[in-house]
Design a protein around this nucleic acid. Structure first.
Lengths: 224, 224, 224, 224
DNA sequence: CATGAATGAGTATTCATTCAT
DNA sequence: AATGAATGAATACTCATTCAT
């Protein structure tokens, strides 16, 4: 590490430096883009303004992305990666389907809350994406749905849940999480993420859990 | 109708003709815009293409709207008017809060289904609207929510509903109706509007109706 | 005149009526155009606004003129006709070249004053005219110049005037009259037409009249 | 110049380069605009054509001006700056009011001659300017007038000039200089700037200078 | 004759992207 | 690698003119 690397240099080290710079630049661009996208939307966000906000030149941005749309994908991708990382991790190792679903839903809501702009983008800017970008997004939403629907199917099979259609319910849970971003203008006056999450979990529990097991999940249910 | 109109002409009649023409033209523009907006989004919809699609000239469009944004408002307004017309009408005269809520929700879903493009626009193109257009939209959503929340509060008071927060629940119902448009790409493979509506009503009923009354609403509940 | 004209009508009378109507309509258009042109200029004057101002429909205007430019020519022509009518009439029958020139200049200034808008138009809107319109204007200005230059030549020949170039001087007199319109924003705070005219005549007299005749024209000279 | 500039570069030098480029570009645009404006007028001059004439792209023009009107102001400003530079400089240090006035007038005529298009623009395109542009123009004409009127007042006080109204006379002198541009189509067939200037100076001298001093300014007076 | 709704060619302005330095 | 000046295709909106009623 500390020894001289010679005139040709430590190739691996240079690669690492390069990768780190790329990471760093993309991070700059990502956070500047997130700010501007939430304020102005994709069409009104100018590359010029983005460059100023990120503290780099226009040319530099194009060294890291190929088109303006790539910047959108950068932001959307960021939240999707968070879903894939956080949601399964939260559900991991929990046997009881009710608790597992609750843990997954809570994790999902927390990711939405910490990436509100990105969560909205999928709804607001899908028309700004290419066909492939759009389809990838749908594909990933189906993937997330499956974490929930597997769990629901499991609960229905074991009798913890009343018989429901796992597809609608999982989609509805996803929607409820997104709702925190979509209706934040309305909900944030009354709730924070945690109270919102508990409130919706309460509804979900009452709707899904079989009567004979309801008492066991009182800790998930809000009593207003 | 049968009397002579005199030399100056039938002024009232001329006004009526004018109003009818305006109505007709706006209808042409509205349906052409609805088509193009759903295909391409607001930014990519060119006035030139809209004119061709509507079968009129560019100049004619600008005789009926002042800016491109007005065309967006035209479409959004159309669905909003449908909500205001259909939802209260469907709830009118129904005493029982559960039945009333179900009727309102069903009506809402049907309106969404028949105006899917317009329903999406509020989510996709809000950044293309002026501040006033956006605020008007929020205002009207709050209004629709109140139809539901009044009903829920009523049900909670009379003990038909378990205690819930009317604000979240009504917002969630609205969201569930919008969900039919937002996730149509996913849901339409499994459901039509009616089965979707019943499915969600089934969840809602289980979540909201107090246990001792659940049996009375079996007709609202899907048994898969 | 008073007898019935039968079904075919009095053709001559009808012609007269038609001519009178044309006259009347052109008068309406002329005065509306004069107003709007002075307020907004040619390019910003819309035919639609002109129609409203004149109290007729757009179509009616086009029944009396062929193009928008014709409306400009209408106004310009109006002032030119006034020059041709008033200036020679004022100079008519005056023998003395100094008095004749003074009479012509005064008449010219009065016409400019009563048609200020039209007088400006030749300077402001020449680029809005076709080549022929522009050339006709120049031609007519040369004609007016000649009233003055003939008179000056006459005065120089008889020794009343010092030797000067009739072309520059006559053009300068024309310019001084136009100046009342061109610099009205500046001059009107200090003068009315008459005092302005006397002031300029005073200068002209001192510049042109031979010293030995100066005393005879004291009535033309302002003593401040 | 010779010292090393260090890693950050010569910031002052970069600023200077930038300023020089702006100067150069504005010069390109100015001369192209002057040409097209004189040929076609403001309304008919297209930005597209201007770009071609200037040898740059449309986008580049908009990097140096904000609106089409700014281009007009660029040209008008150019001549106004010349007046302010040349006229006082020419009058500077000349004691005798007659000689001083003659020097100022000559300088003014030369500026008009070398910027004929710009001089016309103030008359032709004032309606194309914003209120502030127009008012600035008037303000600056009043300023130029004051160079002359101060001089005239001086001459009247010392008895070199006959009593005249300095305001009208100075305005008339300004007008006479502008006249070389306004009536160039007529005057250029007979004169060049110098002979025109002498001719008018000759008139002015005869009109203003008191009889007892006239002989001293024979060199200003044309004897045809 | 009068009307005024319909037309559509014409144009200023924007902004993602490039590339010489 | 970074810069930012230059590019030019793309597009909303205007308004003189027409013509069916």
């Amino acid at each position: 590490m500390t020894q001289s690397d010679g005139p040709i240099g430590n190739l691996e080290g240079m690669e690492a430096v390069r990768a780190a710079r790329i990471e760093w630049r993309l991070g700059q661009i990502l956070s500047a883009a997130t700010k501007l996208l939430s304020e102005q939307g994709f069409q009104k966000m100018l590359i010029t303004d983005l460059a100023r906000e990120a503290g780099v030149s226009v040319g530099t941005i194009y060294q890291y992305v190929n088109t303006k749309e790539d910047i959108l994908l950068l932001v959307v991708n960021d939240i999707i990666e968070s879903y894939r990382r956080e949601v399964p991790a939260a559900m991991e190792g929990i046997e009881d389907p009710v608790e597992r679903l609750a843990a997954g839903f809570s994790a999902y809501c927390l990711v939405v809350d910490s990436h509100r702009t990105g969560a909205l983008l999928a709804y607001q800017e899908s028309k700004s994406m290419s066909r492939v970008g759009r389809e990838r997004l749908m594909q990933l939403e189906v993937e997330t749905n499956s974490y929930f629907s597997d769990c629901i199917r499991d609960g229905v099979r074991t009798g913890k849940f009343v018989p429901v259609d796992p597809a609608v319910v999982s989609a509805t849970l996803t929607m409820m999480a997104h709702m925190w971003a979509l209706k934040h203008w309305y909900l944030s006056a009354m709730f924070d993420v945690n109270s919102y999450t508990r409130n919706q979990l309460s509804l979900i529990t009452k709707a899904l859990v079989a009567v004979e097991f309801q008492n066991g999940y009182a800790h998930l249910v809000d009593h207003i």
